[in-house]
Structure formats: structure tokens, C-alpha cells
Design a protein around this nucleic acid. Structure first.
Length: 247
DNA sequence: AATATACCCAACCGCACCCAG
DNA sequence: ACTGGGTGCGGTTGGGTATAT
């Protein structure tokens, strides 16, 4: 059977958009708003697939887009979010106003990957490359949940549902486990260790480390005795995902 | 100056999810 | 419960541009 194609490919333009097409699309969306992408091309007089129109608008024509280079702060935020979320570019983009998932994905693949590799960090696991190779254990909640479910023999849908059940609407109240804890390194006597991103990525006391002072004597805002980790500037063992809503 | 190579990014493709019927 | 249309997402590709040889 198969699904019907999203558009009549024989009569649609492909490739780069012309100025005229951009103008038509922009004018139409300004007049009628977003949505109904399937019927939009015809209504707007465009020989384009609806998906293509949506992509062009979202990634290029939207007036609230922030063009230009990523700042150092954006870089670090992307790295932190990727460490937590993995390749969930749309979720990451949701935390970077004016940036699109496609833009962030491209930026990750062309700049940040290399940046992390230069730091000796595996961009996939956010752990030092040599150790990431030795131990492929997971670093994110979702990934570890998937791994657990895989062991138990559930299918992909079950896995996703399970993650979703644990994280309804991604309003997750997660306890973030440290991405890596060197077994040979004893915990600080207080038993409460607040790790900055550099440390949690395996660069303890590196030049990017910002927790050398805060790691002593700080405690989790939850008041629990569990170790707290400084993530996204929140010295807490719990990350509230309600602030990570999707677009 | 010409050619090769690397890099960047817009756009495409296929799949999965959501939801109305 | 099932089906199919609409939409969103992530991976990949291809063409343009910059840099190296």
C-alpha cells in the first residue's frame, strides 16, 4: 500500500530558493499565518513541497531568527544541553532563542565536535576519549533508560513510552548522575560534590573548571544527602525539565 | 593562475509521532 | 482499535565558497 507522497514531486521546484519564492512565502505567511503546510504552496502560488516551505520558513525566513556567529555562551550551553539530551536538536534549539534546530545541528557537526575533540572529549559521550572507548556506559538519562529497556527486551516504542512515562512532557524531575566518576578518586570528605561542566566532562581541574571553590561545602538545594551537580548553573541534584519545553 | 581539498550550510529525505475520523 | 493525513525531527547530501598546494 504505502503512503501517498507529501506532494506532487513532478511539478515542484527543488534546490535553492529564489528571492521571489522567499517573498511569496513570507507574504503568504504574514497574511495567513503558519500551518497547513500541505496546502500552502498551492495557495501561495509556489511550486514547492509543503515540507520545503515549512523548512524554508523555520530555518531562514522567520523574522525572529538570530543570524550570525554563535557566542561563547551559546557554545557552552549547546554542549551542556547536548550532554544531557543527546541529538535532540529541536529541544536544544528551544533553549536558544532565535536559533533553529538545523542551525545548531550544523554548528555542532562543523564546530563543536571539533572543539570537543581538541579538548580530548568524545562528542558522543562527553567523556575523555580514551575512557569513553574503554567504557561505553551511558551518560544521559534517556540513553540509560533506553539501555535498560533494551536489556529487558522491550521494543523501541516501549522504550520511548517508558522514557516518556518517566518524563511526561519532558517535565522530568531528573536526578542527574555524574557522567563520570573516577573510581580511584575518593569523594570529598563532605560527601557533597558540585561539579562544573568541565569536571563532569572529565576535565577535572582543567582551565575551564569553575567548581574548584564551590565544590567544597556546597549542598544540594533539594536538601537531600545525594551529591549535587552544578548543571546549567543550577547547583542541584534535580533538573526541572519544565524549563526545557519543546518549541 | 589553476587545481585540489576542506569546509560550511541550506535543503532534501525518510521515518516516527499525533490526532481526527 | 485501526487507518491515513499532516507535521516534526534527525540524518544526510550537494553545491557554493574558502583555503592550500
Amino acid at each position: 500500500m504505502g503512503r501517498s507522497p507529501c506532494c506532487e514531486k513532478a511539478h515542484t521546484n527543488k534546490g535553492a530558493w529564489t528571492k521571489e519564492e522567499d517573498d511569496r512565502l513570507t507574504a503568504y505567511i504574514r497574511a495567513h499565518g503558519e500551518g497547513c503546510w500541505r496546502s500552502l504552496p498551492k495557495a501561495a502560488g509556489l511550486l514547492r513541497c509543503g515540507k520545503s516551505c515549512r523548512l524554508r520558513w523555520i530555518n531562514y525566513l522567520r523574522p525572529d531568527l538570530k543570524r550570525g556567529n554563535f557566542t561563547e555562551e551559546e557554545d557552552e550551553l549547546i554542549i551542556k544541553l547536548h550532554n544531557l539530551l543527546g541529538n535532540k536538536w529541536s529541544l536544544i534549539a528551544g533553549r536558544l532563542p532565535g536559533r533553529t534546530d538545523n542551525e545548531i545541528k550544523n554548528y555542532w557537526n562543523t564546530h563543536i565536535r571539533r572543539k570537543l575533540l581538541n579538548r580530548g572529549i568524545d562528542p558522543a559521550t562527553h567523556r575523555p576519549i580514551n575512557e569513553a572507548a574503554q567504557d561505553a556506559s551511558t551518560i544521559s538519562f534517556a540513553a540509560s533508560a533506553v539501555k535498560e529497556e533494551e536489556k529487558s527486551g522491550y521494543g523501541e516504542k516501549d522504550i520511548k513510552r517508558s522514557v516518556q512515562e518517566r518524563c511526561p512532557d519532558l517535565n522530568l524531575e531528573l536526578t542527574i548522575s555524574p557522567p563520570y566518576q573516577n573510581q580511584n578518586e575518593p569523594l570529598k570528605k563532605t560527601g557533597v560534590v558540585s561539579l562544573c561542566f568541565a569536571c563532569s566532562s572529565g576535565l577535572q581541574n582543567g582551565k575551564d573548571c569553575s567548581c574548584r571553590i564551590s565544590s567544597i561545602g556546597s549542598s544540594s538545594s533539594t536538601g537531600s544527602s545525594a551529591p549535587g551537580y552544578d548543571f546549567l548553573g543550577m547547583k542541584s541534584a534535580v533538573l526541572d525539565y519544565r524549563s526545557l519545553e519543546t518549541k
